[in-house]
């Protein structure tokens, strides 16, 4: 699995993808930092993350859409799946490397926190739960993006399916309040209040596990129908 993580992370930064993702994320964060924090003269770092969560819908596919679609299109999946590595370790390797790039992007936002610490005293507990919640949300998003990439050889389709799915879950509460707890982005809103929302964490992890398993099943199944 390490071999795959090493290569995948390297690939993100050998191609512009890693830089574009982190750059875009930080650029949007800067905008929100100015609009939601600086303009109000507050030290509430988490406000920036409220808005950043919406942007995640559109930038996660940058990380995930190529994962398996590109390998299938180029035929390199033949090298991957005929190696002695198991499908499970390949899927986990790819998932963790995308998660790693996401983590790097998130750590960069600590610069904004440092600025706030210079001018005031932000509430450290809410900051930590926000960062945790945001990372959980991105893990869930990455797992779905990876799944979408495993079902097609067209990266664009993988990306569009991913964005479409996120938008649908985003607006679920508008259809029925009972669906609120299935809206990934709504679940995130509990974290910036400083709570370690166990129920939400469990939901995120379940969702992530579900789509990792589905990806493995899809790839396994492709062996017999390909």
């Amino acid at each position: 699995m390490w071999a795959i993580i090493k290569k995948e992370v390297k690939s993100y930064f050998l191609t512009p993808i890693g830089y574009v993702f982190i750059g875009l994320f930080l650029a949007m964060c800067s905008v929100f930092f100015y609009l939601d924090v600086i303009q109000y003269g507050s030290v509430q770092f988490e406000y920036m993350y409220y808005s950043a969560a919406t942007i995640l819908t559109f930038i996660i596919p940058i990380l995930t859409m190529r994962m398996f679609a590109e390998e299938r299109k180029n035929g390199t999946e033949q090298l991957l799946f005929t190696s002695p590595r198991s499908i499970t370790s390949i899927v986990f390797g790819k998932f963790l490397s995308a998660a790693f790039v996401m983590l790097i992007a998130e750590l960069f936002t600590l610069v904004y926190l440092a600025i706030l610490f210079y001018f005031g005293t932000p509430h450290i507990q809410t900051v930590l739960t926000t960062i945790l919640g945001f990372f959980m949300l991105s893990l869930a998003y990455i797992s779905f993006g990876m799944f979408a990439s495993s079902i097609t050889e067209n990266q664009i389709i993988a990306g569009v399916v991913t964005i479409g799915f996120f938008i649908i879950t985003w607006f679920l509460p508008n259809f029925s309040t009972e669906l609120t707890s299935f809206s990934l982005i709504n679940m995130f809103n509990k974290f910036p209040s400083g709570l370690i929302a166990l129920e939400e964490i469990a939901m995120y992890l379940t969702f992530t596990a579900l789509f990792i398993i589905l990806t493995i099943i899809v790839l396994q199944r492709k062996k017999s129908i390909k």
Binding site: W2, A3, I4, K6, K7, K10, S11, L14, T15, N74, G75, T76, Q78, L79, L80, T82, S83, P84, R85
Partner: peptide, 27 residues
């Protein structure tokens, strides 16, 4: 098994040595 697939699919963004090294890891 060492397999050379039809149409020689390769990771174009890697150098020759990086590619061989990755294949060594995979194997």
């Amino acid at each position: 098994i060492g397999y050379m697939p039809e149409g020689v699919p390769l990771y174009n963004d890697l150098t020759v040595k990086e590619f061989i090294s990755y294949m060594a890891d995979l194997k």
